[in-house]
């Protein structure tokens, strides 16, 4: 019993962590927290199911098509909901524009796809019991994604450019970095990470339109716990949340598990508004 709580807790926690990284990646280049993060996770599942089960794509093509569509949604987010409101960042209009965009995505999915959970294909057919692929797939994907991102950020030119923009937008622009294109690229990258979260977690969460708002909230908690922009914090926060949530489901039942998660979230946030691994506030004056 403990092993199955661990397996599902880590699996769902890895999905939350990936959504947390999606938030972080978008935040890094734009200073915007986008409500679309969870919806991208949802789309990863829904599109994966659509391409592979409904349209009969083979696995690799299905994955590629899914991630491509997600990336397109990410770029659209940047153009429609982020770029126009970046001028007045301090008014926090991005909260509204990305919320609206996220709702549009969710509603279109509900109407055009289904309001009932739809099956997600079994990708490899490896493992059973607690070693079933639906449990380890998200964990492996999460580890691989973090590894790849670390490589990208530390070893490649474009990754370093991302970091430069993330650290000091103005300085980066002054250095002649194509700040705007890098931002678009980071939204595409974030969308791919979100799509991967949904795709790898598809067998666990099914292809369901309501996963979006679910992931939006639970994917945000790792960011809040781990500190904004801190991917390792998001990983630790995500896994901790997944385990806590599954344990709470088991200990106090479905109704009060969400209450327990929320209460914990509020307490941690109020105690450490910058997150457990976050940095301090910027200068205001």
């Amino acid at each position: 019993m403990l092993s199955s709580i661990l397996a599902s807790g880590l699996a769902i926690g890895a999905i939350y962590a990936l959504i947390g990284i999606t938030y972080n990646t978008m935040f890094a280049t734009s200073r915007v927290m986008s409500f679309t993060a969870g919806q991208l996770g949802m789309l990863g599942g829904v599109l994966g199911s659509m391409f592979i089960l409904r349209l009969g794509f083979p696995l690799v093509a299905g994955l590629a098509a899914t991630l491509l569509c997600c990336a397109a949604v990410g770029v659209a987010t940047e153009f429609i909901a982020v770029r126009p409101v970046l001028k007045s960042l301090e008014q926090h209009l991005y909260v509204l524009s990305t919320l609206a965009f996220a709702l549009l995505i969710q509603q279109v999915t509900a109407i055009e796809w289904s309001t009932e959970p739809q099956p997600f294909p079994r990708l490899f057919g490896i493992g059973s019991g607690i070693w079933d692929e639906k449990y380890w797939l998200p964990v492996v994907t999460c580890a691989a994604t973090i590894g790849a991102l670390e490589y990208l950020y530390r070893r490649t030119l474009i990754g370093r450019a991302f970091r430069a923009v993330a650290e000091d937008n103005f300085a980066a622009r002054a250095l002649g970095l194509p700040e705007r294109n890098l931002r678009v690229a980071s939204y595409a990258l974030a969308a791919v990470v979100g799509g991967l979260a949904g795709f790898s977690g598809g067998e666990l969460m099914l292809a369901f339109f309501a996963n979006g708002s679910q992931l939006n909230f639970y994917g945000f908690i790792p960011v809040a716990l781990g500190g904004l922009g801190n991917n390792r914090g998001a990983l630790i926060g995500g896994l901790a949340l997944g385990l806590f949530q599954q344990a709470a489901n088991f200990m106090v039942g479905g109704i009060f598990a969400s209450v327990a998660v929320f209460v914990l979230f509020i307490i941690v946030l109020l105690a450490a508004p910058q997150g457990l691994f976050g940095s301090t506030v910027a200068r205001r004056v």
Binding site: M1, G201, Q246, N249, F250, I255
Partner: peptide, 17 residues
């Protein structure tokens, strides 16, 4: 007797119980 969150990804603990 249990009420399970419909989005709970894994029902194994409940069924084991």
């Amino acid at each position: 007797l249990a009420n399970i969150d419909a989005t709970q990804p894994d029902m194994t603990p409940d069924m084991l119980r």
